[in-house]
């Protein structure tokens, strides 16, 4: 699993790619948290465009980042979710606490992976 972080002013975008499961989640979490502590972004976007699999570990990752970032007054958006990842996050009611954007939705970058 890979995480690439890009910044623009006080905004940060984390591009995740690979399979987000219990095995891979800790490394992703450490990378994001280490960056957040050092950079203190005002807004953070988690871009799921490259995520090919996600289970409840993805829910835990987003909820955990939400708790940490909102305590530091940073907003969190999750974008480019595949139909599947969106379904998993909706199950946790995550749409009530963070902005969730499906793949292709406005504000989410287009990418050519076709779902279904």
């Amino acid at each position: 699993m890979q995480v690439n972080i890009e910044t623009e002013g006080s905004a940060a975008v984390c591009y995740l790619s690979g399979e987000l499961d219990h095995h891979n989640a800790p490394a992703v979490r450490e990378k994001i948290d280490e960056f957040s502590v050092g950079f203190c972004p005002q807004s953070m976007i988690l871009d799921f465009g490259g995520v090919t699999f996600m289970d409840s570990s993805g829910i835990g990752l987003v909820m955990g980042r939400y708790k940490l970032l909102s305590a530091a007054n940073c907003t969190l958006t999750v974008r480019n979710l595949s139909a599947h990842a969106y379904k998993v996050m909706r199950l946790a009611g995550l749409e009530n606490i963070v902005t969730l954007k499906k793949c292709g939705e406005k504000g989410g970058k287009q990418h050519d992976k076709t779902e279904k």
């Binding site: 289970d55 570990s57 955990g64």
Partner: peptide, 11 residues
């Protein structure tokens, strides 16, 4: 605790 959400069975 930690990043476990308690949603495995729900999924």
């Amino acid at each position: 605790g930690g990043d476990r959400s308690g949603l495995g069975f729900s999924v």
